[in-house]
Amino acid sequence: MADQLEVLLLDDEPIVGKRLKPALAKIGCNVEVFEEPAVALKRLDEKTFDVVVTDIRMDDIDGIQVLEHVREKSQRTKVIMITGYAMMALAREAMEKGAFDFIAKPFKPDDLRRVIAKAAKELGSSINFEVEMENEI
């Protein structure tokens, strides 16, 4: 496996991508940021990512549809759902459909980094996220 983790980040709020891209790059992720779900889906057809981080509530195409699309394409890709409208039923639906984890907004970049570290471990990534995170504290 490559040293860098390929991450697709989809959120229709530009500030999310703006804040998270550098935070994830610090721990060795190569992040592609999208604000429009249709464009992100097109990119997912072209490339298999290690990790997909997607907002749930978006216009036209929601995060659950993105999750289903990823599952059809790749069983290996870890999908992390982020939402400002977290509820038990939605969380359970996402997990049942194959999400790797589910995070409620607002969250700290470290919360997402921790989950990505867990995903990387399951993917057999050689990048040591734990050490990187400890150094930052």
């Binding site: 038990m88 969380a91 997990m95 049942e96 984890d101 589910f102 995070i103 969250f107």
Partner: peptide
């Protein structure tokens, strides 16, 4: 899977 612990829960 729906009963798996997750960051949110």
């Amino acid at each position: 899977r729906r009963f798996n612990p997750m960051t949110y829960s």
